[in-house]
Each structure stands twice: as C-alpha cells, then as structure tokens.
C-alpha cells in the first residue's frame, strides 16, 4: 500500500486533533443551557414519567370574569406552568438542579421556607418513578400579578435498596414584578404514601368480616403489630402537617 502523502497526513492529523479536542472540551465544559450544570437524573432508567396534569383558573373572583381578564390569566398561566414543572422536576428527578432553579425562582423569604421544610428526597435515592404529578394554579383576576398553586407529586423509588413511596403536597404563592414571577411563600406537607386498597364489591359485608385473612391482610396485620422499632420506610423529612 502506498504511504499517504504529506498533505494527506496533515489532514488526517488535523481531523484527529479536532476529535480529541472536542471530546476533551465536552468533558471539561458540560453541555446544557448556557452555564447550567449538566442534569444528573435519579429517575428509574428507561421508565417514562407520567405527564403533568395542570389546571389553571381565575382566583380572587367575587364578580364575573371578563373576557380580557381571562386572556390575561391564560397568558400568565402559560408563563407560570413551565416554571412550576421545572421546579418539581428538579426536586424529584434532577436534584443537582434544585439550587439553581430555586435561586432564580424564589424570593429570599420563600427560599428560607423551602430549606426549613426539607422538601424533596434524601440524597441516596435512586430509580425514582413518579406515579402522579398534578398542579392547580389560580391567577388573581385583578391584574394577574399574583397567583397561588397547589402541587401534588407522588413518587416511589429506592433508598438504600429498600422501596419507598412518598406523597408531597406543596402550596406556592407567587407575585409578578417586571414580568418575572417569583415564589414569595412556600409550604409543604410530605408523608409516606400507600395506595388505598379497593373494597371487594362482590362480597357482602358479613362475608368480608368472616373471610379468612388474605396473605396481604396477614402481612398488613404483622406489620401493624411489629414492635421492633424499625423506622418506617419513608423519605427523609417526611412528616404530616395539620392546619
């Protein structure tokens, strides 16, 4: 085989240098939006997360809502919706993004509330699968510069090899200044989540009472009577809150 000419050698060398340089650059300078750090996902691999179910409505209504007000509210709801999605996607799926999202979206006071609430999941969780994520956003009918949102996320995953499921209900209050929405108030109610069992409609009440305990029922009873003192399988910081 004839040896490549000098020109061809230079061309091959240049191509190799570009490839190596690009690889090194991608390694040192993470790709993403502007200067954003790369998102590190803790989602279960290959699992499709459910769609967000978000409703928006006018709030603070004491008379009828005019058409112009509705349009204004819809416009602001379109601005708010991706921000709320981004926040809770960060909390549950991309924890390394939380600080950045909070810094841009929260006021100082709300950020303190968020940190105090210990919202989110413990550090060593993995394989997160979101069961349900819904949000109800109310935008103030007078001026559309204030809003409130109730967000519920139910997720399950693994913590130190053990399965857990958590329900989080978050209340956010938002104010808009200079076209930017900021969270000014935040509170959360987070607790372990168990799917409610469906009643057996085919059997009468008496049959249900007198029937032999199912394997699931026996497991439930043994769990209730467990006095070993093992901590309940829950996410860190989970607690219930009453009004």
């Amino acid at each position: 085989m004839p040896r490549p000419t000098t020109g061809k050698r230079l061309l091959i060398g240049a191509i190799v240098a570009v490839i190596v340089g690009a690889g090194a650059l991608a390694f040192v300078w993470p790709l993403g939006e502007g200067d954003a750090p790369r998102r590190i996902s803790i989602a279960a691999p290959g699992v499709r997360q459910p769609r967000w179910r978000i409703t928006t409505e006018p709030a603070g209504v004491i008379h009828s809502v005019h058409r112009d007000d509705r349009r204004r509210i819809q416009r602001q709801a379109r601005a708010l919706t991706p921000r709320i999605r981004r926040l809770f996607n960060a909390i549950f799926l991309y924890p390394n993004q939380v600080a950045r999202v909070v810094n841009r979206f929260f006021s100082e006071e709300a950020e303190v509330s968020l940190k105090r609430s210990k919202a989110g999941l413990p550090r060593r969780v993995s394989d997160i699968k979101i069961m349900r994520r819904t949000a109800r956003i109310g935008v103030d009918v007078s001026g559309a510069t204030r809003a409130a949102a109730k967000v519920r996320v139910i997720a399950k995953g693994l913590l130190n090899g053990e399965r857990f499921a958590v329900r989080q209900d978050a209340d956010l209050w938002l104010a808009r200044k200079a076209r930017r929405w900021k969270v000014i108030g935040f509170q959360i109610d987070q607790a372990p989540w168990r799917r409610a069992t469906q009643p057996d409609k085919a059997r009468t009440g008496r049959q249900r009472r007198d029937s032999d305990p199912s394997e699931g029922g026996a497991k439930e009873r043994s769990r209730r009577s467990d006095r070993s003192g093992r901590p309940e399988r829950s996410a860190k910081g989970a607690r219930s809150k009453k009004p």
Partner: peptide, 30 residues
C-alpha cells in the same frame, strides 16, 4: 388555604371591596 392556597386572593378581593387601603397590594398579599 389548606384546601386551596388561592383562597388568600379571594380574601384579599373581599377586603378590598369593603376597604380603602393605603397598603400596597403586594404587601397585603404577603
């Protein structure tokens, strides 16, 4: 508010209906 956090906005609307306020709406909301 426990049921619907947007209730704060309704309370604000009711208060402003019966009130003359020298407090900015943002402060009232807060």
């Amino acid at each position: 508010v426990h049921t619907n956090p947007a209730s704060v906005l309704r309370w604000m609307a009711v208060t402003r209906r019966f009130a003359r306020l020298d407090i900015p709406a943002d402060e009232l909301f807060r």
